[in-house]
Design a protein around this nucleic acid. Structure first.
Lengths: 218, 218
DNA sequence: TCCGGCGCCGGGACATCCGCCCACGCCCGG
DNA sequence: CCGGGCGTGGGCGGATGTCCCGGCGCCGGA
């Protein structure tokens, strides 16, 4: 007979219907998991959780409408007994920080074996935290001295990152200066220093860098 | 007993392990399909096709290394008896043209029902061409007058699109002028007209527009 | 056939904007 | 205490964006 622990009830939130269906099929084939629902975006995901109260949510990050981070935050606050396991690709570099801060219990990659997903789910329901090795390594790099905590952004100072974000949103130096209540000249200097550190020469390339790093949404 | 037509043998080429596994599970559950292999990138996909000679390849477009378009072209030329069904997301707007020109027999979206995939596979093996309705509508729009072939990019002329791409890659006006063998003034005029049509004022915002539209990779 | 429109090309002049160099305080750690 | 990083600014030259202008080639409608 089974153990004392019930089979964890799981819902899947992902905008790709095919991926959802395939993953559900995959998990249903494993008797240690029970898939009890699917949703195609953040809104529907929150609503679904409020109805079925699952043990674990497999959450994609990039979705139309309410995205994964927002949905994670809402579920984590409104239904704290439900664990959230982020399941996404490894493109946007820093989203996992936002996701974990929003209340996710784990972060695994779509580029991993089905068995890994199952064991991650089981680990999460038992209270563990799960991190994909690639992500974990990055976290360790950021903590240990090899890569200073902020060194992730190629040595940019906080002020420079702040200004780079605004640049990447299409703001002019003058607007940034007004927003930050500093001189336009100062903004230009920060921007210039940023170019130096990133080894770029141009505002456009700064925008591309920021988009790549996930500092802004395109 | 079965019909005279053999069950189509299918291979899946996609870089996301989880998606591959799930889709394989999904298709294996359908007796009309037989999954005979998987590959994680274009190179491996071509090699796999050369070994097993499947009837259909389900091909993702965005992959590391040799991408889907390149793999499609190679398979279509080296193994013309193998049909290729592109299976991708609906982000990059114009990739489907390249894929079809490279020899794909169909273009379906990951955001669709499993049944649709199965019937698309069956249609492709029987010699049909399959297009996702969203894609087909776009093609029709481009052919009929409703939406001029180019009108998708907010009325930008071909030249303007060409220059916008270079702008979004971080090139300066002078460099673009040299590349296109025209005057810098002309480039500035094209850029200015582009701003006008897109209702933007700034180079940075042009980059963001181009990234959003998939004109350039971030 | 002619003509008007449009895309593409280029010029001039002007007002900014941008990127770069230099400099000044401030604070903190060696 | 002092060297260095950080945030702040001024000045300058080049790049960028805008508004004019004209010319050429092509196409479709009158």
């Amino acid at each position: 007979m089974n153990t004392v622990v019930a089979v964890p009830r799981v819902v899947i939130v992902d905008d790709q219907t095919l991926f959802r269906s395939g993953l559900a099929k995959l998990l249903e084939a494993d008797e240690r998991i029970c898939v009890v629902g699917q949703a195609a975006d953040g809104e529907a995901g929150v609503e679904l959780v409020s109805r079925v109260h699952p043990d674990v949510v497999l959450m994609d990050l990039k979705m139309p409408g309410l995205d994964g981070v927002g949905a994670t935050r809402r579920i984590a606050t409104e239904f704290p007994e439900t664990k959230i396991l982020v399941l996404t690709t490894f493109d946007a570099e820093n989203h996992f920080i936002q996701a974990l801060r929003a209340g996710a219990s784990g972060y695994v990659l779509k580029d991993s074996e089905p068995d890994a997903i199952v064991s991650s789910i089981l680990a999460v329901v038992s209270g563990e935290r799960v991190m994909a090795t690639a992500v974990a390594n990055r976290v360790l790099d950021m903590l240990t001295g090899t890569l200073a905590p902020k060194e992730f952004y190629d040595g940019l100072t906080p002020r420079e990152i702040e200004i780079l974000k605004l640049v990447a949103e299409g703001m002019a130096n003058k607007q940034i200066a007004y927003r930050l209540k500093i001189s336009e000249k100062t903004v230009r200097n920060h921007v210039s220093n940023t170019y130096d550190k990133l080894k770029i020469v141009d505002r456009s390339q700064a925008v591309l860098y920021a988009v790549r790093k996930g500092l802004v949404e395109p």
